[in-house]
Design a protein around this nucleic acid. Structure first.
Lengths: 113, 113
DNA sequence: TGATATACCTTGACAGACGATGTATGTCGT
DNA sequence: ACGACATACATCGTCTGTCAAGGTATATCA
């Protein structure tokens, strides 16, 4: 009943920030990485990916530039700003807190009174 | 930047199923439980709660009946159906899988190549 | 009398995810 | 030469879940 959309919703931003934290990258590769890491179980759909890029760039957490490929399709690369790095760290901490709470809420561990 | 809505989105169903897994309950108490468990950090808003009840009942995973309170406000109790129990267990398993993947995706642990 | 707690409910708006669709370049097989 | 496929980016319109705002009703306590 749970689908990819609901599972990732709210974390797409952080997933993209994570991909960019170790170096500039571009849409197609990020999309592929997500599929590889999750064994194809979860995926950031292209429509989601590109609208998210727009949103993050408007927010000033990423910046983009065109790569100078010789041959092949053009690539728009994205770069994490300082603010982006800060947000990434913050979101990681938040995920730790929130995922622990969801664990509690959905009864993954029995709580003693 | 992450807010309660985004964090819980996709898990409200499971949270409610979890609350009902140990016995029938009603909206107000479930809402309070979520706040207590998370120390007030996360909360299921009433509008969300009641629209979710409708959706789950339509789906046949919960059933409702009016309590016979003598005095005080009336309460609509909810009961997990067999299908509801099944879905709850399934969603718990899914959460284990998906949360591990999100951990990977947002770089909570460094992966060796 | 009115404030507070308990308890339920609906409407309308918003925001994020995504299917469908489109564009363009380059490679490989036949 | 032609079509299939992979790479790569982009937008539009729809769907769905969340929630602020508003409402109803009962009981208790100051």
């Amino acid at each position: 009943m749970l689908n990819s959309s609901d599972v990732l919703r709210g974390y797409t931003d952080t997933i993209i920030l994570a991909q960019l934290a170790h170096g500039d990258s571009y849409g197609y590769v990020i999309s592929r990485n997500v599929q590889n890491i999750t064994g194809g179980v979860l995926s950031l759909k292209e429509a989601t990916l590109y609208t998210t890029f727009r949103r993050l760039e408007s927010a000033g957490v990423i910046e983009s530039y065109w790569g100078d490929e010789q041959g092949g399709a053009r690539r728009r690369y994205y770069h994490l700003t300082d603010e982006g790095h800060r947000l990434y760290e913050e979101n990681k901490r938040d995920w730790l807190t929130y995922s622990a709470m969801i664990n509690q809420l959905i009864g993954m561990e029995e709580q003693e009174s």
